[in-house]
Write a protein that binds this DNA or RNA. Structure first.
Length: 292
DNA sequence: TCAATAATAT
DNA sequence: AATATTATTG
């Protein structure tokens, strides 16, 4: 049992391709995936595959699952981002509060760690199915005055990002998530959100790109200054910014709507934003609380 | 063995 | 609910 990754039908990928499963299977019992799946669950005794054994099976936090998780957290906002609520919002059968709590823990930890620090290069992605939306890895351009005139002040505590309610946003309207889409985390910047929604990089990178590229002032380290005694190909990013870089920028922009967009990013149209929201099942913009 | 990740305990 | 600890896995 252990992981329940198996059931991808196609066999093309070990992982499932798209969520498409409104209700994930958290530990599928299907041991049929080929003689494998040794019963790790010792306590599992044949009989009803149903609920009897759903105790020890591990939840595989696939991207899809995680996506839901993140979305739930997003919706709830940091105030309500509590395991039980998250659980509800996710509506994943079989998932327990504990599962969520555990994941939340990890989630928070990671955020804490890689946020205040330099690049928040996301976690390793375990599913490369839907890679970034930039097939050709265009390069991002940055304003020269990049030294960030914006007194972005303190680094936000990560989980408690301020609610820049009064700040002008990209869209013509002043709208955007009150609690802000704090997800600099996910493997995919925004699942299902396409380039059009968030803007596409359009310009080649200037040469002076070595320093920082995030609006915060921190960014990727200049590889030329690093001692690569190991002779690693680390300078690769210099000439060809990985999608990570792009992701980085996009995320940065998403996370800090109140900052000016970096050159090369076009703001999403209000329409696309709304469309995306409704796509995600959000037809109404929650003012603040979801609580009752 | 070790690191990562989820489960379980406090 | 949050955090700490333990267990499992690769």
């Amino acid at each position: 049992m252990v992981k329940e990754e198996a059931d991808s039908v196609d066999g093309a990928k070990g992982e499932r391709t798209v969520d498409s499963h409104p209700q994930d299977r958290v530990n599928s019992e299907d041991s049929r995936a080929g003689a494998e799946k040794p019963n790790t669950v010792s306590g599992l005794h044949s009989s009803r595959p149903n609920k009897a054994n759903r105790k020890k099976l591990k939840v595989d936090w696939t991207t899809e699952l995680h996506k839901k998780f993140v979305q739930a957290v997003d919706q709830l906002g940091i105030d309500q981002a509590i395991p039980s609520r998250i659980l509800e919002l996710m509506k994943v059968e079989g998932l327990t509060r504990h599962n969520v709590a555990s994941h939340l823990q990890k989630y928070r930890m990671h955020k804490r760690h890689l946020l205040p620090k330099e690049d928040d290069r996301r976690w390793p992605q375990r599913d490369q199915t839907q890679r970034s939306c930039h097939p050709h890895k265009p390069i991002m351009a940055f304003p020269p005055y990049h030294s960030n005139p914006v007194p972005v002040g303190p680094v936000y505590p990560m989980w408690g990002t301020p609610h820049p309610a009064s700040i002008q946003t990209w869209g013509s309207q002043g709208y955007y998530y009150p609690w802000q889409p704090t997800e600099s985390w996910q493997w995919k910047p925004y699942p299902g959100v396409h380039a059009d929604a968030w803007g596409c990089p359009v310009m080649p990178i200037p040469q002076g790109n070595c320093s920082t590229f995030t609006q915060n002032g921190y960014g990727f380290h200049c590889s030329s200054t690093m001692d690569n005694r190991s002779g690693m190909p680390q300078n690769s990013i210099q000439h060809q910014p990985a999608e990570e870089v792009i992701d980085e920028v996009v995320k940065e922009a998403i996370n800090k709507p109140w900052l000016p967009l970096p050159l090369g990013l076009k703001p999403p149209s209000t329409d696309s934003v709304l469309a995306e929201l409704s796509r995600q099942g959000i037809s109404t913009i929650p003012p603040r609380n979801q609580r009752l």
